[in-house]
């Protein structure tokens, strides 16, 4: 028991070691990413402000992440709804197939989409082609989150609303939607975070406009860019912790609202 606890703490240190280094080097007044540290500086953060190529990449990534998150969540709502409410032939197979991107190596997804888009349709690669790929890989995560929201929704709540005279649409608007809203918000946030960080698919499907990870990838080859990337990484870590905390709060609120006991994390 004590040994197990020590192990758990050691494991957490292993998990957090790389992230803990980020701020050290981001505020380090030296161009080499190594110890010993050289002193405190804000200049790498200031450098972020004066790198227009990065700004473009961030804007591209934000556009892609917002669009993919909305699309993946809308598709996820359909799948979660079908899963929770209806029985139909091949249901398990169909829902399992939709979840496949979760276990497919991302390079396969990237390559196969590239083949279809470039070789078959001869479409130009753009931000939209990245959105197509990101929606595909965010969808299973959205479904996993929304499934628990829809499963926790007692079917007789909707029947009660119909029984009290509401139309199906108003039932959805007045009862279903408010009750699954926390799940929807949390699905949007998680999908957004995944898309924002995704590299390989974007690497294959992006055209002349790089996303933020594609930009970071390119910069990792140049030692003089590294401190700025560390600064960027620090901001990203802080941002995702905030986003995840908000997502978690919404998830818990959803459980509380549905009167269900908390059983664990997002997945």
């Amino acid at each position: 028991m004590r040994g197990l606890k020590l192990y758990a703490i050691g494991y957490l240190i292993f998990l957090y070691a790389p992230i803990a280094l980020l701020p050290l080097f981001a505020f380090n007044d030296g161009t080499v990413i190594a110890f010993p540290l050289q002193g405190f500086t804000w200049k790498w953060f200031a450098g972020l402000a004066t790198t227009p190529a990065l700004h473009d990449a961030v804007i591209n990534s934000l556009l892609i992440a917002v669009t993919s998150a909305i699309l993946a969540t809308l598709l996820g709502i359909c799948a979660a709804r079908a899963n929770a409410r209806y029985r139909f032939p091949f249901k398990t197979g169909i829902l399992g197939f939709i979840m496949v991107p979760l276990v497919l190596p991302e390079i396969i997804v990237g390559v196969s989409l590239l083949v279809v888009i470039a070789n078959i349709f001869s479409m130009r690669l753009s931000l939209w082609t990245v959105v197509l790929g990101h929606t595909l890989i965010c969808m299973p995560f959205a479904i996993a989150i929304l499934n628990s929201a829809f499963d926790n929704l007692d079917a007789s709540l909707e029947e009660a609303a119909v029984d009290l005279g509401e139309t199906p649409w108003n039932t959805f608007r007045l009862v279903t939607l408010p009750l699954v809203m926390p799940g929807i918000v949390s699905s949007l946030l998680i999908s957004f975070t995944i898309s924002l960080d995704e590299f390989i698919i974007a690497f294959f499907l992006t055209g002349a406009e790089p996303t933020m990870p594609v930009y970071i990838w390119a910069q990792l080859r140049f030692p003089q860019s590294l401190p700025i990337i560390m600064a960027l990484g620090t901001i990203l870590v802080a941002l995702s912790i905030v986003l995840l905390t908000v997502a978690e709060i919404f998830r818990r609120r959803g459980l509380a609202r549905a009167g269900v006991r908390d059983t664990g994390g997002f997945l």
């Binding site: 598709l75 359909c78 079908a82 029985r87 139909f88 496949v100 196969s112 083949v115 078959i120 479904i143």
Partner: peptide, 30 residues
Amino acid sequence: ETTKGYATVAPPLLYAFFLLAVPLGAVLVL
């Protein structure tokens, strides 16, 4: 119920079909 189930699951299913099954098939053909 079957019809409604299929109608509801259709959007994600079609999406996964055209952006997953079809591309994987294309890779196989290629």
